[in-house]
């Protein structure tokens, strides 16, 4: 199962529709929507948190949250 946490730095994916319920409302409000393109920009030196870019928002989220958000990897 691919999640945001399984992306490599620079890799992109699309947030899958089925993960809607596992996205916290706050993240949803910040543009982390199902169907949106998400890129992993950077990983913090201690492997956590993750720095992502989604829908034009640059956000840092914890690995724990990221590993619950399923994605479809882009080719």
């Amino acid at each position: 199962m691919n999640t945001i946490a399984s992306l490599h730095i620079g890799e992109m994916g699309y947030i899958s529709e089925e993960s809607l319920d596992s996205i916290p409302l706050k993240l949803l409000e910040m543009g982390c929507l199902p169907g949106a393109e998400v890129q992993l920009v950077q990983i913090a030196p201690l492997k956590d948190p993750l720095y992502i870019c989604v829908n034009g928002s640059h956000l840092a989220i914890r690995k724990e949250t990221a590993s619950k958000i399923r994605i479809l990897k882009s080719e």
């Binding site: 916290p24 948190p49 640059h58």
Partner: peptide
């Protein structure tokens, strides 16, 4: 514990 920070 929920954490999200915008990187401006």
């Amino acid at each position: 514990s929920f954490f999200v920070v915008e990187m401006p």
